[in-house]
């Protein structure tokens, strides 16, 4: 049987740390290399735009993952705390 250990405080701290990373990351944004190509040659510019657009799309995916790791873990910790509270009240009755 799988052993389950719950440290709601640790989970909450991790969630908040990821939330901060997500905020910082979205602030940093994918603003790099937008606009003009470094070279005016079409055969170069097309490849450059493709690769930077692909990288920016991957960055957006990463931004979502960071956000989920933050909000998800904070919610998980809250549920864990709620369960602990309910259990402790149950035992006291």
């Amino acid at each position: 049987m799988t052993e389950i250990t719950i440290d709601a405080g640790g989970r909450d701290s991790a969630g908040r740390a990821f939330g901060a990373l997500a905020d910082e990351y979205s602030g940093h944004g994918g603003g790099w290399c937008r606009g003009e190509s470094p070279l005016p040659y079409e055969e170069f510019a097309a490849g450059y735009h493709e690769v930077t657009a692909g990288l920016r799309a991957a960055c957006e995916g990463l931004s979502s993952s960071l956000d989920q790791a933050g909000t998800g873990q904070v919610a998980m910790a809250a549920i864990n705390r709620g369960t602990e509270l309910a259990n402790s009240r149950g035992w006291q009755v």
Binding site: T5, D7, G10, R11, L21, M76
Partner: peptide, 23 residues
């Protein structure tokens, strides 16, 4: 930094913790 942040929840174990580890 994401590895460091993840270690804060390192005391957790079980299927839910595994899913977060994977994420």
């Amino acid at each position: 930094e994401s590895r460091r942040a993840h270690r804060l929840a390192g005391a957790n174990s079980g299927p839910a913790a595994d899913a977060v580890d994977d994420h």
